[in-house]
Amino acid sequence: MSATEPHPWLAGALVPGRFGAAAGEPVRLGTRACELVQVLARRDGDAALQAAIRAAGGPDLPPPGHAAQGERMAALWTQPRGWLIQAGPDAGLARRLADACGPAAAVVEQTHGRCVFTLEGAHARAVLARLCRVDLHPRAFGPGRVAVTPLSEIAAVIHQTGAAPGFDIIVASSYARAVAGMLAAAAAPIGYQVGGDQMGGDQMGGDQMGGDRVD
């Protein structure tokens, strides 16, 4: 299974179309196809990890609560000296980073271990606020911010990708189906759209939504 294929756990969970409240502007709900790699600096490995990330086209590793976008990949802070690296599909990222880091860092492939949902639109903040307790007001949170926090009862990484606003919501793949249902239920009173304008027949909406980053 490559990164561009939909997560099998999600089969049939997100169907293209418009759902929930019919009036007003819907939020857009989908998934993002990308490579994910968890990196953890080992003792005295910080400089070597940073050098490997930079050499691979990544950014300066961001401080707590922040994400940074590099030329070829983004880094999301998830814990002290630990980041989630996110890159385009099929980048073969984990292998290259592991080779570059050597013993300086623990590099763990997470592409299929996690699932990335996208939630975008003027009312995305209101939908997310039903499920998580982080202060999402623009004065407290904004593009490039990251929070590791439970979404309802499920561990999640929330990453604001754009000012629209747009959010990436990263959860364990085994919870993806539950989170898809949770997001749909939270978005229903506002109305939500799965998939783009040109809806394909056999593809999940998530693939059509997983295009360019908002930022």
């Binding site: 707590p64 609560g65 002290p80 307790r133 982080v134 202060d135 929070a147």
Partner: peptide
Amino acid sequence: PVCAMDRPELEF
């Protein structure tokens, strides 16, 4: 103090 954010008690 690590995350530098206010979070609800039930995360702790």
